[in-house]
Amino acid sequence: MSELRTERLVLRQWRKSDLAPWAAMNADPEVREHFDGVLTRQQSEASAARFRAAIEQRGWGWWAVEVRDTGEFIGFTGLDPVDEDMPFTGVEAGWRLARSAWGHGFATEAALAVVAFGFETLALPEILAVTTATNVRSQAVMRRIGMTRDPADDFDDLTVPDGPLRPSVVYRMSRRTAA
């Protein structure tokens, strides 16, 4: 299993001790603002179990993120194959952090680590990121790590109810442009 380290973060396999802060994060309406509602404790635990199993199986996926100096769990980041119901294929980079971790550059630092892993270790030709059109904070991270958006890739995510969360944007980065 791959564990990634940055200057301030550890991206690692999920632990039982991550479940309570992960559930609290997913119950926070601000953290879940760009998703279809908050999650119950059971839903959060089920997602962590899926993330853990994918990392065990592949050696990579949605890693838990902790602060190196304190060991505090602050969210997740990683890479995952795009869901089958999306209008494109590939491997997606993503992140979600607790509100207390916002504004410190952690999302950018973690995203840069997973993109480097994707290109250098997995030899992916391209990595993409997807979010709602209204999620300007995540789009800013995508731009900071060097991803670009082509409005022709934008789509309506039919897996979410009709409304402001349906319009989605896609950012991309190729291994060629990352080098």
Rank of each mutant, 00 (worst) to 15 (best):
L79H: 02
E3Q: 12
L19I: 11
T132L: 10
T159N: 10
V67M: 12
D80W: 15
R68M: 10
W14C: 00
D18W: 00
G78I: 02
E30K: 10
A53R: 08
F155T: 00
D80P: 12
E126C: 10
R52C: 07
R41T: 02
G146Y: 01
Q139W: 10
Q42G: 11
Q42I: 07
D154K: 13
G71S: 11
L9R: 04
G90A: 01
M173I: 05
G71P: 08
A110T: 02
R5P: 02
D154W: 14
S168H: 08
R137W: 04
P151I: 05
E56T: 11
R8V: 02
R137L: 04
G146A: 02
E66R: 14
V31S: 10
A20T: 09
L122E: 03
V114G: 04
A93W: 08
L128R: 09
R175F: 06
A101T: 11
E84R: 11
W14Q: 01
A98D: 12
W102H: 08
D162P: 00
A101G: 13
R68P: 04
T89C: 15
R12S: 00
P125S: 08
P125M: 08
T131Q: 11
R172D: 08
T132G: 10
F119T: 05
D28L: 14
A111H: 07
W63G: 02
W95E: 01
F119W: 08
R15Y: 12
R96K: 07
S47M: 13
R32H: 08
D85E: 08
M1K: 09
D150Y: 07
P167R: 05
E7Y: 09
V169Y: 01
Q43P: 08
L39W: 15
T132D: 09
V91T: 04
S17D: 06
V160Y: 02
L112W: 11
F88T: 00
V170R: 06
A54Y: 12
I74C: 06
S100T: 15
S44H: 07
M25I: 12
D153I: 06
E66C: 11
P21Y: 05
P21R: 05
G118V: 02
E45K: 09
D28Y: 14
N26Y: 13
A179Q: 12
A49C: 09
P161G: 02
V169G: 01
T148E: 15
F73N: 05
A98V: 09
N26L: 13
R58Q: 12
E66G: 07
P87K: 10
E30I: 09
V31A: 13
P29V: 13
P151N: 05
V38Q: 07
R99N: 15
Q139I: 03
A20F: 07
F119I: 03
L19R: 13
T40M: 14
K16G: 07
M25W: 08
T177D: 15
V91W: 02
A24W: 10
A178L: 03
T77H: 07
T6D: 09
M86F: 06
R5Q: 12
E56D: 14
R8I: 01
G78P: 04
P167M: 03
T89S: 15
G118A: 10
L158C: 04
R58G: 02
